[in-house]
Simulated scan of single mutants.
Amino acid sequence: MLFSTSPGLRAETITLIGEDDWYPYSALKNGQLQGFAVDVIDAAYASVGVKVQFVAAPYARCLMLVQTGQAMGCFDSLNDAKLGQEFVFHKEPIFKAVIGIYARADAAAQKITVAELKGHRVGFTHGYTYGDEVEKDNRIFREDAPTDISSLRKLLLGRSEYSLVYTRVVDYLNAFYASELQGKIRQVGIVTEDKLFVSFSKLRPEAARYADLLDKGLQTVRANGTYAVLEKKWKNPAL
């Protein structure tokens, strides 16, 4: 990873689980967990003398392992009403990201709000949360899918009317699955621009300390310019 400190400063090591299929934020590529979130977390902890070993897993399993105390932390998570009760969170976000509302290109809707999703079948990715406004509205009919690309495929097949996916993830999927997606889906709304975090286990007594250390590290890399360098690096990620 980039921006490591001198070997003598990294006196301890922790293991964190990152989602294996959420590029450009976190994904398993060429046998290694890669992405913007991975680099930011690594750099932040390096600045406070902690080395991170990254493990990849599907997001739902990532959360389960942390919730049951089998792992220290999972990323990338929303600190919403649901997850906020189940995990320990740091205060400084890893990054902010926009959740978009997507429809088929030939759909009648030109613009839609979250409130207008009620009564419609909407694509969700299994294990993800989408903010309190969505999660608390049981009038939205959920069409779950194992991954974001599966959710968009269900949208194209007519199994859902809308799909909720982060906009930068859609940008990547549009390029990687160009023959399937390009020109066939379009963004018709925004759920929210939200902050993403590492969710730490409440069953690990050391979790609060590592959450605090991550806050300190994130403040450091934002102040010293490292964060800006990583943002530029991941602005146009390789396929």
Rank of each mutant, 00 (worst) to 15 (best):
S4V: 09
L9D: 14
L9T: 12
G18N: 04
D20M: 07
W22G: 11
P24A: 00
Y25S: 06
A27F: 09
K29A: 13
N30L: 06
L33S: 13
F36I: 02
F36E: 15
A37Y: 13
A37F: 12
V38A: 02
D39T: 00
I41F: 06
I41W: 10
D42P: 00
A44H: 06
Y45F: 15
V52W: 11
V52C: 03
Q53I: 15
A57H: 13
Y59L: 14
L63K: 13
Q67K: 13
G69W: 07
Q70E: 15
A71C: 01
C74E: 05
L78D: 08
N79C: 08
D80Y: 07
D80G: 07
D80R: 00
L83A: 11
F87R: 03
F89K: 07
H90C: 07
I94K: 04
V98G: 03
A103K: 02
R104I: 01
A105L: 04
D106L: 02
A107R: 05
A108S: 14
A109K: 10
A109F: 08
Q110D: 14
H126M: 13
Y128Q: 05
Y130E: 08
G131I: 02
G131F: 10
D132E: 05
E135C: 01
I140V: 12
R142V: 09
D148N: 15
I149Q: 07
K154D: 12
K154R: 14
L157I: 03
G158L: 05
E161D: 13
E161A: 07
S163D: 10
V165H: 10
Y166W: 12
Y166L: 09
V170A: 10
D171G: 00
Y177G: 03
Y177A: 09
S179P: 06
E180F: 08
L181D: 09
I185F: 10
Q187H: 01
Q187M: 09
Q187G: 00
T192K: 15
K195D: 15
S199Q: 08
P205Q: 00
P205F: 04
A207V: 04
R209S: 06
D215T: 00
G217M: 00
L218P: 00
Q219L: 15
G225N: 04
G225P: 07
G225C: 00
G225S: 02
T226E: 03
A228K: 13
A228T: 11
E231M: 02
K232H: 08
W234F: 11
A238G: 08
